[in-house]
Design a protein around this nucleic acid. Sequence first.
DNA 1: CCTTAGGTACACTGATCTGTGAAGTCAAAG
DNA 2: CTTTGACTTCACAGATCAGTGTACCTAAGG
Lengths: 197, 197
Amino acid sequence: MKDHHSDVRLTPGARRILDTASALFYHHGIHAVGVDLIATESGVTKRTLYDRFGSKDTLVTAYLRNRHQQWWTRWEQRLENAPPPRALTVFDSYTADAPMSDRGCAFLNAAAELPPTHPGYQVIRHHKEQVRERLRHLIAEDPRIHNPDHLAGHLFLLVEGAIAHRGIDGTDDRLTHARAMAEHLLASAGEHTPAHP
Amino acid sequence: MKDHHSDVRLTPGARRILDTASALFYHHGIHAVGVDLIATESGVTKRTLYDRFGSKDTLVTAYLRNRHQQWWTRWEQRLENAPPPRALTVFDSYTADAPMSDRGCAFLNAAAELPPTHPGYQVIRHHKEQVRERLRHLIAEDPRIHNPDHLAGHLFLLVEGAIAHRGIDGTDDRLTHARAMAEHLLASAGEHTPAHP
DNA sequence: CCTTAGGTACACTGATCTGTGAAGTCAAAG
DNA sequence: CTTTGACTTCACAGATCAGTGTACCTAAGG
């Protein structure tokens, strides 16, 4: 529990490789970053990289898995001390630390440049599915809301649209606006629920 | 007017290069497609490609410009015979022909793998800005709607979220749902407008 | 003491990348 | 008849790509 990272079964070198690769992949794209750079930047030989991860594709997949795990943990933490409606924390989770999200969503970006056959692609799908599902549960915490699934779908699109543009616009504005819209949506869904006036 | 394409000042070879490059860039990503493949696939020499476009970056920029022009024209056409609320046509414009959108939004995908310094990046920003602005105007066509800008922002995020997931999910479901949500939003914004009961 | 794990150092392969140089073909327009 | 524009052929540069083979070092654990 002293390490906040995902897989503790990682060698010190492997840990550094994964962290470096994560930063580089996220900020410059996957195809744009070569293994030589990753090795150099992590103070490790390319030989070590291949001894630990076997291939670039595997490293990419590890990157996505690690990223999901990190993001999920952070969200869970934020969720603990959050006042209802807790669904709104998704937006805050992105706005939180800038260098972690200044290029938008790592998963959407990866999906944009990886072929659907890539082993990492199912990690992407899994991540998005998990987020949407968790969102649905959080919305359903308010018993006055009758259609949590529909509302979850709506909020999910708002999040995805906003975070997709986070990288393009360079601002958190879209995220902030999306949060406000979501807040209004949740409020009005909780208000006139039993029977409309 | 006999050619539906953007820049008529293009040589036959250049036209084929641009069309081929567009298809390849969109379906496999920009970094994943080399100039050799583009040249071969368009039945043209690499020499010709460089004589016409100068560099790959320029070709990429031309691709984005062309794509914007095409998309915009198609939208404009669809807009002509559309019943109000005409803002909903954005969704249809994406759902229309599958091979043109089965990998999601070309501009979001390009933004995901290009550095912000790339000459094509401002084309991306321009495209998105134009779409949002047009959306705002279309929404304002209904005089009963008081906050067209806010509503445009909302619809825009729904579109972007849905189209970003078009490539991941492989389905038009997200787009269809987004359209339904937008329809409801527009309807309720048009209904209780003068003073709420 | 000896094995094993996690490395380093470094040369090297073969493929692919963007981009260029030089010479030649062909048709249309002046 | 000659120039110009679009295009071909093909060789080649120089960099970078993912990935491997071999030998060596060092610390921890049996």
